[in-house]
Simulated assay, not measured.
Amino acid sequence: MSSCCAPDGGCGTGAGASTTVTAVVDGTATVYRVSGMTCGHCETAISTSVGALDGVLGVDVDVAGGLVTVTAAGAPDDSAVAAAVGDAGYELTGRA
């Protein structure tokens, strides 16, 4: 597991902080704790990876709080969310 972030918490890609917001209509929101996020690139990587899962309607990433809120059409598949977070280079440590 690796990310773009340097050990000092800086972004190794030089990317600035960004905000990715996905509009959500109706669904079930589940909040997860994720470790290793430090910058806007982390936010984008997780939003893209988790957002590509079937049934996911929206993803909200709180880098500072270490939280990822996934809104899905039904109950989210925790193992699929964990795999998507892992594929992005981070670790899902459980539900918040």
Rank of each mutant, 00 (worst) to 15 (best):
G74P: 09
L92P: 02
G9S: 14
R33I: 04
V24K: 14
A72M: 14
A88M: 03
A29C: 06
A23S: 10
V31C: 08
T44F: 00
T13Y: 05
D78E: 15
A23V: 15
G27S: 12
V85G: 00
T38W: 01
T48P: 05
Y32R: 07
S18M: 12
R33L: 09
G9P: 09
T28V: 10
A15K: 05
P7C: 09
G27M: 15
V50G: 05
G10L: 10
S79F: 05
G9T: 04
D77F: 09
D62G: 15
G12A: 03
V70K: 01
G9L: 08
P7Y: 05
T28H: 13
G16R: 11
V63S: 00
G36A: 08
A45W: 00
V25N: 14
V50R: 04
G36Q: 04
S35L: 01
V21D: 13
T71K: 08
D78F: 11
T22L: 14
A17V: 02
V85S: 00
G66Y: 08
T69K: 13
L92N: 03
S79C: 03
D26H: 12
V25M: 13
D78Y: 09
T44Y: 01
A96Y: 08
S35V: 03
S49E: 15
V34W: 01
V61D: 00
C4G: 09
G66V: 15
G66F: 06
R95Y: 04
C4I: 09
L67Q: 12
V31D: 11
A52M: 07
G55Q: 10
L57S: 15
T19M: 02
T48I: 06
G27V: 14
S49P: 09
T22A: 15
D60L: 13
C11S: 01
V56Y: 07
V61Y: 00
M1T: 12
A64G: 12
A72P: 10
C42A: 00
V50P: 04
S2M: 09
S79A: 13
A52K: 14
T69I: 13
V31H: 04
T71Y: 09
T22V: 12
T13K: 07
V81Q: 04
V63G: 01
D60F: 13
V24W: 13
D62Q: 12
S47N: 10
A6R: 14
E43Q: 10
G86I: 05
T22R: 14
T13R: 07
D8W: 07
L92R: 04
T19I: 08
T38E: 02
V24S: 12
T19C: 03
S3N: 09
T93D: 08
T19E: 03
C5A: 04
G36E: 03
T93S: 08
T38R: 01
V68W: 05
A6F: 15
P7S: 08
V25D: 11
T69D: 11
I46R: 01
P7V: 06
D77H: 13
S49K: 06
T93L: 11
A73C: 10
A73N: 15
A64Y: 08
V34C: 02
V21L: 11
G16H: 10
T22C: 13
D77N: 11
M37I: 06
A80G: 06
L92Q: 07
A29L: 05
C11Q: 03
H41A: 01
L53P: 14
S47Y: 02
V56H: 05
G58R: 07
T28F: 10
